Amino acid sequence: MEGLLAAAFPGANITLSNDSAQHRGHAGDDGSGESHFSLLIIWDGFAGQNRVARQRLVNRALGDLPGQRVHALAIKALTPGE
Rank of each mutant, 00 (worst) to 15 (best):
H36E: 14
D64M: 13
A27V: 09
V58F: 01
D30T: 14
R69E: 15
T15A: 13
A8W: 05
G45F: 00
Q22K: 14
D64E: 15
I41Y: 07
V70N: 07
L5S: 08
D44H: 11
L4C: 08
G3L: 02
A12Y: 09
R56E: 13
G63I: 05
P80R: 14
T79W: 02
P80H: 11
H36V: 09
A6F: 00
G28A: 06
D30Q: 12
H71E: 14
G25L: 01
R54W: 00
G28S: 07
A47K: 12
G63P: 01
S17M: 15
H23R: 03
T79Q: 07
Q22G: 10
L39I: 02
G25E: 04
G11M: 06
T15E: 11
K76G: 07
A12D: 07
I41S: 08
S20N: 02
D29F: 02
W43G: 01
S35K: 08
G11T: 10
L5A: 05
L40K: 07
A74T: 13
L39Q: 02
S17D: 15
D30K: 15
N59V: 02
G67Y: 05
G28T: 11
I75N: 04
L5Y: 06
T15D: 09
Q55A: 09
L40F: 04
G48T: 07
S35Q: 08
D64G: 14
S17K: 15
G67D: 11
A12V: 09
N13L: 15
A74N: 12
A6W: 00
